Amino acid sequence: MTTKAIIGRLESIALPELAISDLQVRVDTGAKTSSLHVDNIAKIKKDGKRMVTFDLHPDVHNVKNIVSCQAPIHDIRRVKSSNGTSEQRYVISTPVKLGDELWNIEITLTDRSDMSYLMLFGREAIGDRFLVDPSKVFINS
Rank of each mutant, 00 (worst) to 15 (best):
R77I: 03
R112S: 04
S141H: 06
K43R: 15
F54A: 08
A71W: 09
R9P: 03
I6A: 03
R89Q: 13
F121L: 02
T85F: 13
T3A: 07
I66M: 05
V60H: 10
V25L: 09
S34Y: 00
I41E: 11
T108F: 01
A31P: 09
V91I: 15
A125R: 02
S82G: 06
F138D: 06
E124Y: 08
L120A: 14
P95L: 06
D111Q: 11
V38H: 04
A5F: 10
Y117W: 05
K64A: 11
G127Q: 03
V91S: 07
R26T: 09
N140K: 09
L18G: 01
L131M: 13
P95G: 04
K4Y: 08
P16V: 15
P58I: 12
D100H: 10
P72N: 14
D39G: 02
N65K: 14
G8S: 05
G8H: 06
D75M: 11
T2V: 07
D75R: 07
K64L: 03
E124T: 07
T33V: 13
G8N: 03
V60G: 03
N40C: 12
V67L: 07
C69F: 11
T110L: 10
P72S: 10
I66E: 02
M1Q: 13
L102C: 09
K136A: 05
K4E: 07
K43S: 13
N62D: 08
I41T: 12
K97A: 05
T94L: 03
H74F: 15
A31F: 02
S135L: 09
D22I: 04
V52L: 14
